[in-house]
Design a protein around this nucleic acid. Sequence first.
DNA 1: CGAGAGTTTTCGGCATGCCGAAACCTTAGC
DNA 2: GCTAAGGTTTCGGCATGCCGAAAACTCTCG
Lengths: 217, 217
Amino acid sequence: MPANSPAIEDYLKTVYAHTEWQPDAITPKVLADRLGVAPSSVTEMVKKMAAAGLVSHVPYGAVRLTDAGLSRALAVVRRHRLIETWLVHEMGYAWDEVHDEAEVLEHAISDRLLEAIDVRLGRPARDPHGDAIPAADGTLVSEPWVLLGDATAGHSGAVIRISDRDPAVLRLLHECGIGPGTVVTVTDASPEAVTVEAHGTAQRLPAEAALAIWVAA
Amino acid sequence: MPANSPAIEDYLKTVYAHTEWQPDAITPKVLADRLGVAPSSVTEMVKKMAAAGLVSHVPYGAVRLTDAGLSRALAVVRRHRLIETWLVHEMGYAWDEVHDEAEVLEHAISDRLLEAIDVRLGRPARDPHGDAIPAADGTLVSEPWVLLGDATAGHSGAVIRISDRDPAVLRLLHECGIGPGTVVTVTDASPEAVTVEAHGTAQRLPAEAALAIWVAA
DNA sequence: CGAGAGTTTTCGGCATGCCGAAACCTTAGC
DNA sequence: GCTAAGGTTTCGGCATGCCGAAAACTCTCG
């Protein structure tokens, strides 16, 4: 009944991250793919986490965070995003370089150091990718959004956040000059790609990029 | 044959730290005490490290770092001391509060982030306790010193470093106003305690504190 | 409804690191 | 030199987390 460990924190974070982008609960297979472990490892770990009251799970079913699990997941996400923000703002990292470093540090930093970093940064509400940073009490900012990949032609709005899962997407967008706050207008939408106008120029974004972007609704 | 892991790094660091204060090689018993593990765990780990070429060890004998082990130990010590320096200089920690945090972070920080911290701090040569920080190539500053606990009456010199192993000693010295750079003069020396004059006032330091202080020779 | 594909679970196993108990050395003291 | 104390090693065992193979389940399609 430890309920804490780097491994469990990674599972919690991954389950939570899925809920931010997908309406339906995550399946063990997807969890395994995201974590880079074998499905059998997920079964085992999920059972342990269910016993600890962090997730709900019935055999052969999906995995859902309990209230306790959500609260622990938010704490991990807070660590991750604050560390990413710190790396970019103070340590000279680019936004596509921070993920792996934060992945490790989030399990190592004490609450006290995290608080010191939060204060230094001025208690930021969003990280460099636009991801909301949960406050220490678990609350987080939110505003209406649509996936750019789901937006129809004519839709216009500021980019809110960009998934940091694929560094290649981040680099592509960096080259296009698209980041959080950039106002984009959809000029053409198809399942394969979305064409947007940003900074007065047209950019064709493949689906994998368009599905990694939240735009203000 | 991994030759790296948080556990092995801790063993290397502990063996190295011993050589900074004691002339003779560390025994498994002492290693076990310092690390807070059972002697049998040390036997096992030392065997593994010897097989990896990090230490030399014959059964029932002491443990000594090889050249490879020394170089890896210095890298770990560098991490530890740079992190401690950073915590004090930038994150508002006191010198008696940094040890545990650094203990964890030293295993988590990447070379790149360490370099960024080193640059930010201006490539310091010593940490807040006066411990020399090995350069990236393994070189480190040194100057002649004597243990304050071994000094005779009349000896005078600047405090070079203070062991960070016992926070209570650090706090005691902080209250006395004694830190790296403080010039002290020994007025009385006995096995139990050393009396020194510092900042014009006399201070009686118990042996455990006097044996944790290096003074310029 | 039934079969096959794909998913999930079970099971035995492996690696790391730790432990305690018992056996084994070494060495200090007589 | 011998004994006893204390340090060291061996051994079996435990916990965490991971794996692959095989069994079990679900679900979709015909």
